[in-house]
Amino acid sequence: MLDGREYRITVIGAGPAGAAAAISAAAMSMEVDWYDKENRPGGKLNDYHQLFPDRATADQILADFDGRTDAIEIKKHFGTAVNRIETDNRQLILLSDNKIVGSADAVIVATGFDFFDARLKEEFGYGIYDHVITSPDLEKILKTNPEDLRKEGADPVSIAFVHCVGSRDQQAGINYCSRLCCITGIRQAIGIKELFPSCKVVNFYIDIRAFGSGYEELYREAQEKYKIQFIRGRVSEASENQQHRILLKAEDTLMARPLKLTVDWLVLLVGMVPSCTQVQIDNHQCTDQETGFYQPVNVFTGSRIAGLPGIFMAGACGGPMSIPEAIASGRSAAMEAWQYLKDR
């Protein structure tokens, strides 16, 4: 039995990683303060429709978290953005807009990520053409009102997805792979096919990186059962025609020939970037110079943020991560925090 009764821990962020960390810390009897800048927990899960690979609804996961966080002693401080931590001897002082809001023996930072701002890739026309949307935009449409995808009552004839928007792209200053956009594109393409079976759905990819459990199987299902067409080649530019349809140019690299396609909607599968609400810790540079994500003390064995005793990281604030990975990382950060507090 892990007994953390005399330890006071703060979790910043109420997405999947933060929820898992808070639940685990509370289960070890630690005194948990749980913060989020929003007024409700769930983070980006609130805007998601379905999850991969089994296409469970995001609401199911949210309900599960709500049930568990309500059943255990956790002090919730939602609507408070902790954006600074100051270390005072062994005490960690939490500040929100330069006002002290609390203190703790250990902190788990689970501030998550932002989506890449697709307007920076001007060639795709996001923010310029109405029918160019991003994967989180599509997710909201699928969740709230899929009818919005119809045009004057008619089913869309064709929809294309572009993989790797703001991912693996030196032009965008992002050299890493966000890993989860591929499977998001596959799942969303299936969602479109289910709504509009006669719609032509084309995914433009560079490599398909379907690395997780069940991902490859979903990819194959998308090809074989749903007849989604995968074209190896990156869309180089999008433009709008007079019918407000989007004209795409790409190369089919398997044929070594240029290609064109007109679509009703263009969906940009945007990558994951560091959150704009990262927490500043004293005056430390605790994020990776190149990617901007938090750096662990050891990528294999430790989730403590490099150089900072008592401050741990969980979830996608440390780099692109799936929801199950974020949950596991939240749990392990709680465990490490307990061990740190016990040993110090």
């Binding site: 007849k227 089919d252 240029p258 064109k260």
Partner: peptide, 27 residues
Amino acid sequence: RQIDLDHADNSLATELAEVVSAWSACI
């Protein structure tokens, strides 16, 4: 040389995909 996916006659491809469904899973 441009491939025009808008005006492609895909009847043969559709017919073949019906009889050999696994063909669609080619990578």
